[in-house]
Every structure is written in structure tokens, then in C-alpha cells.
């Protein structure tokens, strides 16, 4: 995964899609995995206690995010 801001990490609106979703496509993929979804929520809670907590995503979720990013880039 690159550090660049891609469409997968934004909730863009366009002329034909004016209703932005509640989550970015990337977060939507994370939420689809119960384990990674919990990691995301736990990371937020840790952050609220001033703790540094990264989200170590499962390989499946990383692959899905990567594939989706590629799909969006080529679209």
C-alpha cells in the first residue's frame, strides 16, 4: 500500500454520485472483516487514551484494499 492519497481513502462526491457514503471505501473493506474492524475500533479507543496503536490488517484485507485501489485507479 502506498502512502499517497488515493480515491480509496476519500469520500468524494461527483456530479453523478452526490451522496457520499459514511465511510471511505478503504474503511468499508476493513469493517467487512470482523477482526480488522475490531482492530480499527480498538485503535481509536487507544488513541483517545493518548496511546499509539496501529492497525495491523490481515493479509486478506490488505489484498482487498490493494485490489480495490487498483480498480479505482484504472477506472
Amino acid at each position: 500500500m502506498s502512502n499517497n492519497k488515493e480515491q480509496i481513502d476519500k469520500r468524494n462526491i461527483s456530479f453523478w454520485n452526490t451522496d457520499s457514503p459514511l465511510t471511505s471505501r478503504r474503511v468499508s473493506i476493513i469493517l467487512n472483516s470482523p477482526k480488522d474492524s475490531k482492530k480499527l475500533a480498538d485503535a481509536v479507543r487507544a488513541l483517545r487514551h493518548n496511546e499509539h496503536s496501529t492497525i495491523k490488517l490481515s493479509k486478506e484485507t490488505k489484498d482487498r484494499i490493494h485490489a480495490e485501489a487498483e480498480k479505482l485507479k484504472s477506472a
Binding site: 500500500m1 502512502n3 481513502d9 471511505s24 478503504r26 474503511v27 480499527l40 485503535a43 481509536v44 488513541l47 499509539h52 496503536s53 496501529t54 492497525i55 495491523k56 490488517l57
Partner: peptide, 14 residues
């Protein structure tokens, strides 16, 4: 929140 990458390329909420 948004998500950033830390130096180990792991996601971190911000």
C-alpha cells in the same frame, strides 16, 4: 477520523 500510515506502513487513525 481519517487514516494515516506510520513509518512501518501500518495504518493509524488520526
Amino acid at each position: 477520523y481519517t487514516l494515516d500510515f506510520d513509518k512501518n506502513e501500518e495504518l493509524i487513525p488520526r
